[in-house]
Amino acid sequence: MYTLLIVQLAVSGALMGMVYALIAYGFQLTFATSKSINFGQGELVMLSALFSLTLIDSGLPYWLVVPGGMLFGVILGLFVERAAVRLSLEQKGEGWILLTIILGLLGFSAAENIWGRDDRPFPTPIPSDPLHFFGIDVTPLELSVAIGVLTVMGLVELFKRKTLLGKAFEAVSADRDAAQLMGISATRTIQLSYGLSGLVAAMAGILVAPITTVGPTMASVLILKAFSVAVVAGLDSGFGVVLIGLFLGALESLTSFYLGSGWREAPGLVLLILALAVRPNGVFGKASIRKV
């Protein structure tokens, strides 16, 4: 009976961990092409979730809300690239770090002013009555998170492997200068990566919203853990973020059971500290981690 409880906790936690994995995957996408990431990605998750909530409130059916919210995420991602990243990369500078943080803060203020400070429930047609698998309860809602995450990541990976544009994306990631010599525009490819990163972040927001509720602060904790997952898994393995995401999710759930829910955020932080201590240069490379 006791073992079953442990497994139950681990499974529920791991399913939540998939959300960290998806956000971390968004970091990987832009890091691959440009060696930069959006430090305001949490706000992007949150704004996309709030926008989707507005779509629901306006009476749009759920199956239209999802693509609508994702489109909004793409637009935000493209905006971040244009406003905060492009010029600084052209000058081979690190200005994007500060600029993306500032954009995030602006996004946060905007959210407070437009949607208010309260957390609100996010209605979803997906039921939360548990299903039983071998004595373990899993709600369709939790399952939808895992399925949604794997679907989005699978589609992006398929795009990268099967289309020429996707191969160009990989080429820019492998060697930006050589890719340019093939006629591939690095600028456009980086733009594309920010668009995709915005898309997966929005998807993460929509998937997690029914579980966490929606408000300006909804992503502040999420983003820290996504960051841990990205640093621990490394910034080039999509498979790695899923594994680490599952692991961290399960670990958190067990920690809060054994040590009390106040310790819930500890594993993510400890993991991050360990990863940075063991690999002092960090996965972001020497230059950027020093400044972060």
Partner: peptide, 14 residues
Amino acid sequence: KVFGPLSVEDNLLL
């Protein structure tokens, strides 16, 4: 400056 992680054929296609 070949694209190391990509296959020979993908390099050619690119």
